[in-house]
Amino acid sequence: MRRMEAQGLDRLAERAGALARPGTRRLLGLAGPPGAGKSTLAARLVERLDGLAVLVPMDGFHLAGAELARLGRADRKGAPDTFDAAGYAALLARLRAPEPGTVVYAPAFDRALEEPVAGSVAVPPETPLVVTEGNYLLHGGDGWAAVRPLLDEVWYLDLPDALRVPRLVARHVRFGRSEAEAEAWVSRSDEANARLIARGRHRADLVVRMD
């Protein structure tokens, strides 16, 4: 886990734990550009909370590859309009109001397949905190404006580009792209998305500076 300036993991887990009150349901969002460490931090928080939280990733709402191809958006995968934003917001609304005795099943994203997988994450009604992470939790356009009001807190993860971009390239290589292909994708697609995501930073409740 990278060190977090001003806010160590213990303090972040304590803040998240304050939301995880049995008998209630709260939603915590982690936003930030690609490669900032959202999924890593989210997993660590859920682990620390030891049964009081479940992780529901926004990436489960990627449109399937076949649908992206049909729409002519496959070369922009990861952009705001390559997700089912309305479906994600509908799930968050459902998670905010759990029904006794009803488990909600959420999708996840399989990086090996590069496809969303339905019914991957079980959220029991008694779990007090749902942690969700993704790029566009603070985005106001492309159908995403409904998301922010459904989250009790949103943290924006800020990692310097000099660290974030090489890490992002390495991740693409790890999942099958050549280094040249990874660098081209990051430069053309991921960084365009990162600039868009940064515009919502001021809407966060907390900025977590990571290095």
Rank of each mutant, 00 (worst) to 15 (best):
V54L: 00
P33V: 07
G87I: 00
A145G: 13
E47N: 03
L157C: 12
H139K: 11
E14F: 02
A180H: 14
A6T: 15
A74F: 03
E114C: 05
V130S: 10
R203D: 11
M58V: 02
P22K: 01
L19G: 08
Q7F: 09
P98A: 08
L92T: 12
E67K: 06
A31I: 00
E14R: 03
A93Q: 13
L30S: 02
G60W: 03
L71T: 14
A13G: 01
L163M: 13
V165N: 06
D50G: 01
A18K: 04
L41V: 01
P125M: 14
P116G: 12
F83W: 09
S120G: 10
F175C: 10
A31V: 01
H202A: 15
P125F: 15
E67L: 11
E5H: 07
R48I: 08
L150T: 11
T40Y: 06
S189Y: 02
A170Q: 15
D211F: 00
A53P: 02
R70P: 14
L137P: 07
R11L: 10
A31Y: 01
V54W: 00
G29L: 05
A182K: 14
E14K: 02
M58F: 06
R148W: 05
R73Q: 13
E14Y: 01
L68W: 03
R21L: 08
R70S: 13
R2H: 08
A162T: 15
E133Q: 12
A184C: 05
R25S: 01
H62R: 07
L9S: 04
